[in-house]
Amino acid sequence: MKKRLTERQFQEAIKGLDVGAQTLEIARGVLIDGKPQKEFATALGLSRGAISQAVNRVWAAHDERNLPAGYVRVSAILPEHRAFIVKKWAEDATKKRQHKK
């Protein structure tokens, strides 16, 4: 699935985000206009990793602001068997949210 945003979603995502104009230009081109990241890497003389990082920075901000009501994002270091259980819970929660749509 290609990551895409509307102009409104993009504007919401970048509110308060501390990034430079070039990062915004790259993210807008990829996320709104659907341009390939490779095009920016070539045009700006940057690595694909740098382009990906710029896009992911804005996408992560969008993703964080759009959690469903009653959900929180967590990050934890757990023993393997407990991590397995938490991953299953995450899969179940995703399935439940998709069925509600």
Results as ranks from 00 to 15, higher is better:
K2I: 06
K3R: 08
K3Y: 09
K3H: 01
L5H: 10
T6S: 11
Q9M: 13
I14A: 09
K15R: 08
G16N: 02
G16A: 15
L17W: 14
V19K: 11
G20Q: 08
G20M: 10
A21I: 00
A21T: 09
Q22R: 12
Q22D: 12
T23V: 11
T23N: 11
T23K: 05
E25Q: 15
I26W: 00
A27H: 02
V30Y: 03
I32D: 01
I32A: 13
I32Q: 04
D33R: 09
D33Y: 10
K35A: 15
Q37A: 04
Q37D: 05
T42R: 08
A43W: 07
A43C: 12
A43S: 08
L46K: 09
S47I: 08
R48V: 00
A50P: 14
I51T: 09
I51A: 07
S52Q: 15
S52C: 15
A54C: 04
V55W: 01
R57P: 06
V58W: 04
V58D: 10
A60D: 14
A60I: 01
A61W: 04
D63Y: 03
E64K: 13
R65E: 07
R65Y: 02
N66R: 06
L67W: 08
A69Y: 04
Y71N: 11
V72L: 15
R73H: 02
A76Q: 10
L78C: 01
L78S: 00
P79W: 05
E80L: 10
E80W: 01
R82E: 00
F84I: 13
F84R: 06
I85L: 10
I85H: 00
I85S: 04
V86Q: 00
V86N: 09
K87P: 03
K87H: 13
K88D: 02
A90K: 04
T94C: 12
K96G: 15
K100Y: 08
